[in-house]
């Protein structure tokens, strides 16, 4: 089977986000709100937005998968994950921790969905970044605008040349 193309990654990431919205966040509605934009360089991420990213090592290249939202959206996502009321106070470090966990689950769902095409995927440890993720040797990127419940988010796929495997 040929390696997964960008369309496969977009589909797997979108489906995984839908699963998380329903099962982890308790949101009934989750929808893609626009076309996947495949030129992140032409319209970079808003520097005020915050993203959780996780690296994914493939057979022939490497990717970063991201879940990006504005600060208020990130806080709402974190509270939804933890089952907290909107009025409760959540420290910023716990918001970041929750975002890292969300993108970790998101990537696990992608790995499961692409297992037939990419059976050697290795997930890294997630990180939180404000603004655009800086990646060396970028070859391809896509951004999918979505809403998870009431929260506007972007899913991002950033592809670069693979790092050598240890």
């Amino acid at each position: 089977m040929p390696p997964a193309g960008m369309a496969d990654w977009i589909q797997a990431l979108t489906d995984s986000a839908g699963e998380i919205a329903a099962m982890s966040l308790g949101f009934e509605e989750c929808r893609v709100t626009g076309q996947a934009c495949e030129d992140l360089l032409a319209s970079p991420t808003d520097p005020a937005w915050v993203g959780a990213f996780i690296s994914v090592q493939c057979r022939e290249d490497a990717l970063h998968l991201g879940l990006v939202a504005d600060a208020s959206g990130c806080e709402t996502l974190a509270k939804a994950l933890l089952g907290m009321a909107p009025s409760e106070i959540l420290p910023e470090e716990d918001v970041s921790d929750s975002l890292r966990e969300l993108v970790n689950i998101l990537a696990g769902g992608v790995k499961r969905r692409l297992a037939a095409q990419e059976n050697t995927l290795q997930l890294g440890l997630p990180q939180v970044v404000q603004g655009p993720l800086e990646v060396a040797d970028l070859t391809e990127a896509a951004r999918i605008p979505m809403t998870l419940g009431p929260i506007p988010v972007q899913l991002q796929i950033i592809r670069s040349r693979a790092l050598p495997r240890p």
């Binding site: 099962m23 982890s24 970790n104």
Partner: peptide, 26 residues
């Protein structure tokens, strides 16, 4: 764990894990 591929479930079993619950879970 967030990683629930059949290969990882098999690896977990081989090493003696009793089960593997994939995230997201219910």
């Amino acid at each position: 764990t967030s990683e629930g591929t059949p290969e990882m479930k098999q690896k977990a079993e081989e090493e003696g894990a009793l089960f593997l619950i994939s995230k997201p879970f219910t």
